[in-house]
């Protein structure tokens, strides 16, 4: 029998009652937690939001989450054939599921709107 990883993932948006989803996925030695989450998004549940872009190189620094309570890059933390608890960073504004607001404040849309005196929504 091939091994599986059980990912318990925090879901939802701020203001919604906290909920989690459980995903059972095939475990491959050496795989990253992000590999597992990308598998979930691609094959099981595209509605799960997990911020990332470089996938392998650990250069974009977009994928930081809590893995079993510890701050980790999802793309360098190893997947393990057991239950793993994944949550968004606690010290950043929560957007959805595992995604928090990490853009520098002066690179956000609202900052540009204010700076340019643009027309708001």
């Amino acid at each position: 029998m091939s091994a599986t990883a059980r990912l318990i993932v925090r879901r939802g948006r701020p203001g919604e009652p906290p909920s989690t989803s459980l995903y059972e996925i095939p475990y491959t030695p050496g795989a990253s937690v992000l590999d597992g989450l990308r598998y979930v998004r691609a094959q099981l549940d595209p509605s799960l939001s997990v911020r990332h872009s470089c996938i392998n190189a650990n250069t974009c620094k977009e994928c930081m989450i809590l893995v079993d309570g510890k701050v980790e890059y999802a793309c360098t933390a190893r997947l393990e054939p057991r239950e793993m608890k994944l949550e968004p960073l606690p010290n950043k504004a929560h957007l959805k599921d595992l995604v928090t607001e990490i853009a520098p404040p002066d690179e956000r849309l609202d900052h540009a709107l204010a700076a340019r005196a643009g027309v708001g929504a």
Binding site: G30, C54, N56, N58, C75
Partner: peptide, 9 residues
């Protein structure tokens, strides 16, 4: 292979 994380392929 083997799976290499944190480095570009």
């Amino acid at each position: 292979a083997p799976r290499l994380v944190g480095m570009d392929p």
